[in-house]
Design a protein around this nucleic acid. Sequence first.
DNA 1: TCACGCATGTAATCCGTTACATGATTCC
DNA 2: GGAATCATGTAACGGATTACATGCGTGA
Lengths: 183, 183
Amino acid sequence: MALSHAILAVLADRTCSGYDLAKQFDGSVGFFWNASHQQIYRELAKLEQQGIIVGETIQQDSRPNKRQFSLTSAGKAMLCDWIAKPSSLPPTKDELLIKLFVGHLVPLETILTLLQDQQTLHAQALETYQSIAQKYFNDPETFSEAGHFQYLTLRNGIHFETSWLAWCEEAIAYLKQYSDQGG
Amino acid sequence: MALSHAILAVLADRTCSGYDLAKQFDGSVGFFWNASHQQIYRELAKLEQQGIIVGETIQQDSRPNKRQFSLTSAGKAMLCDWIAKPSSLPPTKDELLIKLFVGHLVPLETILTLLQDQQTLHAQALETYQSIAQKYFNDPETFSEAGHFQYLTLRNGIHFETSWLAWCEEAIAYLKQYSDQGG
DNA sequence: TCACGCATGTAATCCGTTACATGATTCC
DNA sequence: GGAATCATGTAACGGATTACATGCGTGA
């Protein structure tokens, strides 16, 4: 369901080939929706069949030809309808938390290592977001209309990663304390 | 892959029927991993075939009979091995953020409504977590060993929902400001 | 009597992942 | 010469969702 909408969302901004889309889903939109190139090509074929997007073959020399896709008016309408529908909370799937949930089955060191690794990954993600913010989103006064909304999704990522890091620190400190005292 | 591990994690604590598992995945473990009863029954069949769990039929009068599953030693070993393996960041999939990303395509009111709805949902989730914390996790001194770890997963949920709420407020305020001034 | 909880499944479809496959150009 | 980038796909498998299906007991 939602992969198709994510593709429409990217195509709303600008026409893209499958390859371009795959790159978008690996950065920018990819920060909150993942998709591999295989999924994207399959979905593009389906959407074209349904008349939601149209593809145009672009002849290129010194490069493979490509197909540029853009939204039809049906596609635009579909996207806007979907945006207006209420969204429920996204289902969480976090394997680290499952591991932690049964952390008492393994040595404490194992769990601390997992937490520290996760902390590093979240710190890296935060740095990525912050450097994007500095480069492209420095002064809200200068943003395009679309820019304001993109900025807010970036702010979401920054909030999210910051709170993960805070939790990691809390969790590590907590486990160290309770293993010293009680374990 | 990970559904099987999530099931093993629940069974590590106590033997369960498929029905019991389905309830666990709808609360507690369900806060960070979702699964429907159909998925669970299928996965149980597979795990039993592989000798990772064993099922025992429990005769019941005035109730349908049930099958209680528990881990074999192979299952326990598998679970512990899995815990020790490093985890990468869980892939995010949040359709609200896709909608926000192309928020300029619809009236501002539509987006504000989405954000306010989401805010309400996150506030409810936070309340749920906080009431669990008060009821069952009031004094860390009294926790069982497993309790410490479960407490940390709950703390994760509280951090997460709190930061979402903060972001929602920020985003709503931001959009109101920029529509007044610039839009 | 009607809804809900207990208890277990099948079938169809869709979505996602992994692996395989090709072939030119450009940069080091 | 080798790796990376551009560009497109197929095939097989596995995981997830939705719908269908059954049937007893309990409490309002």
